[in-house]
Design a protein around this nucleic acid. Structure first.
Lengths: 124, 124
DNA sequence: TAATAGAATTAGAATCATTCTTATAGATCG
DNA sequence: CGATCTATAAGAATGATTCTAATTCTATTA
């Protein structure tokens, strides 16, 4: 656990949003101007593999990273692009039952139109 | 519907696997040597947006493309990387009920260890 | 059939995110 | 204190994808 890793992790913890590597790089540079992009990725990848954070891919957008509180799913508004975390505790078991096999894990992204966008009729 | 698009679509239809843009490019070049990578992407993107085919992202692998028969989910073996299509007709309704909102669509990738790999104890 | 407009294609340059490489710096341990 | 190990910095390299400009094809109209 190096200073750099600590910094990156604290940035993720303090954010309530999903951050791209680039955004993390920008924020990290404010506190530690010498930090390198490679260090960001090294640490994000290491923490992702260790299960400390989560890498999240959404079509057409750079990968985002995310602190892990509990395993969770994502709700993506197709109009404004906002990502909301959701938790469907029963789903994992439901999937095992439906598939008839043990599963390791799953990734679920649900597309919808968020309440804000549903009320604003104008599309982006 | 140009010759190029027809060719690309027929390649996808004839394949029982998920193909990367690169694999499609290679196969298309066999039949139409002058075809350009940009044409592959133009057409894949156009067909993806039109809902004729499906773009599929799996962490650490180039995006794959896939003919659409019916909307479907993916089962990914974490050891050998094999992707299997699955269909969980009830899930969409279940999600709407669980979330209490109408949804547009969803993407689900389930990680597991396939039967073959489960029997071969050696990890990849 | 010839001319023209519009759309799709080609080729390759450009871009973006990400990874790799190499040299350096920092920490750890005897 | 010196040796070794690991992580970092910097920037080059890579790979997938998109963009751009020029060209070709297609359909339409005269």
């Amino acid at each position: 656990m190096t200073k750099q890793r600590e910094l990156i992790l604290s940035i993720l913890k303090q954010s309530d949003r999903h951050l791209t590597a680039d955004e993390i790089f920008f924020l990290a540079k404010l506190k530690m101007p010498s930090i390198a992009m490679a260090t960001i990725y090294n640490n994000l990848n290491a923490m992702n593999e260790a299960g400390v954070i989560n890498r999240l891919h959404i079509d057409g957008v750079a990968d985002c990273f995310d602190k892990i509180t509990e395993p969770h799913d994502h709700l993506l508004c197709d109009r404004c692009g906002k990502i909301t975390d959701i938790r469907l505790p029963a789903l994992s078991g439901d999937l095992e039952r439906a598939l008839g096999t043990e599963i390791e894990d799953y990734e679920l992204t649900v597309h919808y139109v968020c309440p804000d966008c549903r009320h604003n009729t104008k599309r982006r």
